[in-house]
Amino acid sequence: MTVDAIMPNLHASDLDAARRFYVGELGMAEQPMGHDWVTRFVDPSTGAAVQVQIRDATAPEDSAATVKVDDVDALYAAMRAAGYEIVHPLVTEAWGVRRFFVRSPGGAVLNIAQRHG
């Protein structure tokens, strides 16, 4: 299992205000995700990115970061076997991501995800 990327998930109450800040002030490009509750901003020259969300539409709790992996099923099994708290079970979301949420030892909730299909 390999971690491909880690991206912070920041809370915002207004995505339009977030767009003005990240695009207008920081010069990042928006990569819309097709949802009205989350979007991604990326620096075109470096690839540095952040996701901004109002709330997670299908999980019981928002996550602090998304950890993209190459084998989400194996990691889910390993996390369960190790006794970590699974906050949101392993599911394949309608938008093509297979994911689960786990609480890290420091208490942060991580969205562990893999592109599916």
Rank of each mutant, 00 (worst) to 15 (best):
Met1Ala: 09
Thr2Asn: 15
Thr2His: 14
Val3Ser: 11
Val3Ile: 15
Asp4Ser: 13
Ile6Tyr: 04
Met7His: 01
Pro8Arg: 10
Asn9His: 12
Asn9Thr: 10
His11Pro: 06
Asp14His: 08
Asp16Thr: 12
Ala18His: 06
Arg19Pro: 04
Arg19Thr: 10
Arg19Ala: 12
Arg20Ile: 08
Arg20Cys: 07
Leu26Asp: 00
Met28Ile: 00
Ala29Lys: 12
Ala29Met: 10
Ala29Cys: 11
Glu30His: 04
Glu30Ser: 07
Glu30Phe: 02
Gln31His: 12
Gln31Leu: 08
Gln31Pro: 02
Pro32Gln: 05
Gly34Asp: 02
Gly34Thr: 00
His35Gln: 14
Trp37Glu: 06
Trp37Ser: 07
Val38Phe: 11
Thr39Lys: 07
Arg40Glu: 14
Arg40Lys: 12
Arg40Asp: 05
Phe41Pro: 00
Pro44His: 01
Pro44Tyr: 02
Ser45Asn: 09
Ser45Trp: 03
Thr46Ile: 10
Ala48Leu: 15
Ala49Lys: 03
Ala49Gln: 06
Val52Gln: 02
Gln53Asn: 14
Arg55Pro: 06
Ala57Ile: 07
Ala57Cys: 06
Thr58Tyr: 00
Ala59Ser: 09
Ala59Tyr: 03
Ala59Pro: 03
Glu61Arg: 13
Ala64Phe: 01
Ala64Met: 01
Ala64Pro: 00
Ala65Gly: 09
Ala65Ile: 07
Ala65Thr: 09
Thr66Val: 05
Val69Met: 06
Val69Thr: 07
Asp70Gln: 02
Val72Met: 01
Ala74Asp: 04
Ala74Pro: 02
Leu75Asn: 06
Tyr76Ser: 11
Ala77Gln: 13
Ala77His: 11
Ala78Asn: 12
Ala78Ile: 12
Met79Trp: 07
Arg80Asp: 13
Ala82Ser: 13
Tyr84Ser: 14
Tyr84Lys: 14
Glu85Val: 06
Val87Gln: 01
Val87Asp: 01
His88Met: 05
Pro89Asp: 15
Val91Asp: 07
Thr92Glu: 14
Glu93Val: 06
Ala94Glu: 11
Val97His: 06
Val97Pro: 03
Arg99Asp: 13
Phe100Ile: 09
Phe100Ala: 07
Val102Gly: 05
Val102Arg: 04
Pro105Thr: 15
Pro105Asp: 14
Gly106Ile: 15
Ala108Asp: 15
Ala108Tyr: 09
Val109Glu: 03
Ile112Gln: 03
Ala113Trp: 03
Gln114Met: 09
Arg115Trp: 01
Arg115Met: 05
His116Met: 14
Gly117Pro: 13
